[in-house]
């Protein structure tokens, strides 16, 4: 079974937000709402600073509380690659999943249902990269199957230091940040 994941090289990311714009156009994300976003984390005292720039989105957790809490089964784990999705026709907009996500990765679409990053399932099922990955001018995002030890993502994780977000929250996030 494939386990799709994203690996993002924070050393290369320049925080340009191209990934956000690309997601907006690819997926028709409504104005003023973001499926992905940038976080700039600066530590230290000028001029001895360190900055980590992260392109963030739903982590497609292996242990997804948003799926567990959903009363209708609208939030579910897709057969393909463990991607966490929302079936808009089942969603009642109760927002439990919004509250249950430690990454605040979801929002309510103006049409009433919960929405978030889909790992561009319509593209990735066909073997294409997600829109954000495909657009990134620094080539800092990688997408693939981490169950396959020979995939680019697996090799990067094996060879580079990395971290995921809020591991203590127990969600087993599947977006990895190379440092």
């Amino acid at each position: 079974m494939a386990r799709l994941a994203m690996v993002i090289d924070t050393k290369k990311c320049v925080g340009c937000m191209d990934c956000v714009v690309a997601c907006k156009t690819e997926n028709n994300v409504p104005e003023h709402l973001d499926r992905d976003w940038l976080v700039y984390e600066t530590r230290g005292k000028f001029p001895t600073l360190h900055m980590e720039i992260r392109s963030e989105r739903c982590n497609h957790c292996d242990n997804p509380p948003c799926v567990y809490c959903c009363p209708t089964g609208a939030s579910h784990v897709h057969d393909f690659g463990g991607v966490v999705l929302v079936d808009y026709d089942k969603c009642i907009g109760c927002k439990a999943c919004l509250a249950s996500c430690p990454y605040d990765a979801r929002f309510i679409n103006p049409n009433g249902y919960a929405e978030k990053c889909t790992f561009c399932i319509h593209r990735t099922e066909k073997g294409d990269d997600p829109a954000c990955v495909a657009v990134c001018p620094t080539h800092c995002m990688y997408f693939g199957d981490i169950d396959d030890p020979n995939s680019e993502v697996s090799r990067l994780l094996a060879s580079r230091n990395h971290h995921a977000l809020l591991p203590a929250a127990g969600t087993k996030p599947q977006i990895y940040y190379l440092t």
């Binding site: 340009c16 191209d18 956000v20 156009t25 495909a134 990134c136 001018p137």
Partner: peptide, 20 residues
């Protein structure tokens, strides 16, 4: 939407955020 033209040596298939 608009994407980079992979044949183009300037964009190499990827536009910048303003282009996108």
């Amino acid at each position: 939407k608009i994407e980079g033209n992979p044949e183009d040596p300037l964009s190499r298939g990827r536009l910048c955020p303003r282009g996108t």
